[in-house]
Design a protein around this nucleic acid. Structure first.
Length: 364
DNA sequence: GACATTTGACCCGC
DNA sequence: GCGGGTCAAATGTC
């Protein structure tokens, strides 16, 4: 370390502290209600995680640099060969020498692509939804296409694999995995990988407008919800456009996906496995907190379209189940919604105007 | 017909 | 060899 924290580290730390603060607030609120032990446990764990991560950041001995993985993640979409760079060459045998050579090259490329794919930023969002939503899990603002389902060892429920609908047309590499929690059937664990580089898939022009089915699905969900979504997405639009996430700019997909966090726990899995914020990782493991306020006045988020419970869930008492499900998913858009959405007051968190970091440096 | 989902098979890393 | 992730043909839906 250079002896001083750079602003990215400060952001990381502050974010973790904010997260911890929020967890603590929520825990306090939960203590006054009849919350389940699991809920309390989750909050406590969240607090511990937050502070452990902050400490972990403080222990970094080197300045943060943009991780190679991020470069890969950010540029893959823009630089990959349009003709399905990730297409698998299945190792199929070809007869003539030329084709064999080609096949070998393709196989190599495929392997490289596989590695790259594995290095894509990955983060997990736990979303609590109504049981009626079934195994499909909540909808989010993107257009996903299911491409697989697998029974996972020791897991009660199968894991579903989705990729961006515009993968082929726009080479959007975003994927997600949805798995129902073993412990809590109303909880979905959604693991996102890669960022949307598609135009349609982003928050600015959500899936509502593209695939027919989703259009219909959304239409059936009622006007009220549509209004909520519209308001939410309007809040996202300006910022995502400014970010130009579709290009090869450095992305910070995980850290600032606050919309996700409004619906549940969100945590990033880093590219390494320790689960603690790592040096050199600019974006991974920001463990995007759910910053949803325990009270409306405790902080203000432009992205909070609906009342929240203390645990960052939309109050099912105030909303119909279907609304809940959709709103959860609406606020669950994982990508293209980085820091500009960070529209909360640091003052409320105890970070005064003198808190020594400069958010402006994050975005070019 | 276009698009989405299902599902068995395949590939890769561990 | 095993398990997770992905492919792609078959099938379903609109």
């Amino acid at each position: 370390m250079e002896g001083r924290l750079n602003y990215e580290q400060k952001v990381l730390i502050s974010e973790q502290l904010i997260q911890g603060t929020n967890f603590a607030k929520q825990l306090r609120a939960q203590l006054n209600s009849d919350s389940s032990a699991e809920t309390l446990e989750a909050l406590i764990q969240g607090i511990l995680d937050s502070y452990e991560k902050s400490l972990g950041i403080l222990k970094w001995s080197e300045p943060i640099k943009c991780q190679p993985q991020y470069v890969v993640a950010a540029t893959l979409g823009a630089t990959s060969v349009p003709a399905s760079p990730l297409s698998v060459n299945n190792g199929s045998s070809r007869d003539d020498e030329f084709d064999r050579g080609l096949a070998a090259k393709e196989q190599f490329d495929s392997r490289e692509a596989f590695k790259k794919r594995k290095m894509l930023p990955k983060w997990t969002n736990q979303v609590k939804i109504s049981p009626e939503a079934g195994l499909e899990g909540p909808q989010d603002g993107y257009s996903w296409r299911k491409y697989g389902q697998k029974d996972i060892l020791l897991a009660k429920y199968p894991r579903s694999y989705y990729r961006c609908t515009y993968r082929n047309t726009q080479n959007c590499q975003a994927t997600k995995q949805v798995q129902k929690s073993d412990h809590d059937p109303t909880m979905f664990e959604i693991t996102y990988r890669g960022n949307h580089t598609c135009i349609h898939g982003g928050s600015s022009t959500p899936a509502l407008t593209s695939p027919k089915k989703q259009e219909l699905k959304q239409a059936n969900d009622g006007n009220h919800q549509a209004d909520e979504l519209a308001r939410f997405r309007t809040g996202l639009m300006v910022e995502t456009e400014n970010l130009d996430l579709g290009s090869d700019v450095t992305e910070m997909p995980c850290p600032f996906t606050f919309p996700s966090s409004s619906a549940g726990l969100l945590y990033c899995e880093n590219y390494s496995s320790s689960g603690v914020a790592h040096k050199g990782n600019r974006g991974g493991n920001f463990s995007s907190p759910f910053l949803s306020p325990s009270t409306p006045e405790s902080s203000h988020f432009s992205l909070t379209p609906s009342p929240m419970t203390e645990f960052g869930q939309i109050s099912s008492q105030r909303r119909s189940e279907s609304d809940l499900t959709e709103l959860v998913s609406a606020t669950n858009s994982p990508t293209n919604s980085p820091i500009p959405d960070w529209d909360f007051s640091l003052d409320d968190m105890g970070f005064g105007p003198d808190f020594p970091f400069d958010m402006a440096g994050i975005f070019p």
